[in-house]
Nucleic acid binder design. Structure first.
Lengths: 117, 117
DNA sequence: GTAAACATTCACGTCGGCGTGAGGGTCAAG
DNA sequence: CTTGACCCTCACGCCGACGTGAATGTTTAC
């Protein structure tokens, strides 16, 4: 499929998809005319990218991680032992972030609840 | 106390504290010579600010919210009914964000677990 | 009264994930 | 063969919470 369809199917802008390719997160083939050609698997790939970006990982780290989740079963495969320390660090950061967000939400809840009306 | 002490006690840089004042999040008194003078309550206030900033709220919204959590009991007090819609929106955004982060963390966990060694 | 520690006000720099045109090719249908 | 729809490559813009000096003034301890 071409970039427009991938954009529609993922809800990600074309600009963002081109940016992802530039950052090594996608490697579409090309038509003779220079059009990018994506595969069905790229839809899932883009979803993973967005998820990890939303979690605060950099495109650089994601680019290194992606080869480790190549095939069918979502995750398995190669396994990149050298990335484990980084992934653990991100994991802990995410956990801390979740706790902060939870605390902040509690604060908001208390403020909302305390509103006189 | 002066800015250096507040910075030490909150772990927030002096630059950030000045920025918070500029954004209306703090209103320190001044000495004759122009030095900012903060109160003990400002320590808590700064913690709240950081918490809400970390949760993705803008300084502008936080500035509007702070008068609603003035006094002792952390939150109560004035109550700003007109802010409730905004706070609800942020609350929902935070909830969605927590879910995303949780999903991303699960993905990381699976990748870490799938590492061959 | 003087020096060290502490503070002040600008004001430009940063960073990263895109948004947003501009100017111009490619492709499929009729 | 032409006309949309679709795509391409630059390349500057943006945003927001500060970082980072530079040049200067204030306090306090001795």
């Amino acid at each position: 499929m071409r970039i427009g369809e991938l954009a529609r199917r993922t809800g990600v802008s074309e600009r963002a998809l081109r940016y992802y390719e530039e950052q090594g997160l996608l490697q579409p083939a090309r038509t003779a005319g220079g059009y990018r050609v994506f595969t069905a698997a790229d839809v899932e790939r883009v979803r993973h990218v967005r998820l990890l970006l939303a979690a605060g990982l950099s495109t650089a780290l994601i680019a290194e991680m992606l080869p480790c989740m190549v095939p069918a079963a979502d995750v398995l495969a190669p396994g990149c032992p050298e990335l484990v320390p980084y992934m653990n660090r991100e994991r802990d950061r995410i956990t801390a972030s979740i706790e902060e967000l939870t605390t902040a939400r509690d604060l908001l809840d208390r403020m909302i609840a305390a509103t006189p009306v």
